[in-house]
């Protein structure tokens, strides 16, 4: 998928994550987390896997994690990417996201 414009999903509440995506010529991932020391690697792995599955090849991905579960983090990244492509409202290929 292509990131067409800036988009945000999620909140800064506990157990959530806020994901901001912006168009950029190269793919880069920026993570800040309240549990970075313990879970930094896992957050990065979930983010990379999610982006790979959505075939996102370019863009800046900024994650502010507040102790989100993997499935929450994945949901916020997906929502931000789909929003940035104006495709979040309907017709989502849910089977691909499983």
């Amino acid at each position: 998928m292509q990131i067409k414009h800036e988009a945000i999903a999620g909140t800064l509440e506990s157990s959530d994550a806020q994901v901001t995506v912006r168009p950029a010529p190269e793919l880069s991932l920026h993570i800040s987390s309240s549990v970075l020391n313990q879970y930094g690697r896992q957050i990065k792995a979930v983010a990379e896997q999610t982006l790979k599955r959505l075939a996102v090849e370019r863009g800046t991905i900024e994650i502010v994690d507040k102790g989100a579960l993997d499935c929450t983090l994945k949901a916020r990244i997906e929502a931000a990417i789909y929003r940035s492509a104006d495709q979040s409202a309907a017709g989502i290929a849910w089977e691909v996201l499983a």
Partner: peptide, 11 residues
Amino acid sequence: KDSARFSLFNT
């Protein structure tokens, strides 16, 4: 509404 569906699905 859109974001809530992603949350629901992944949960």
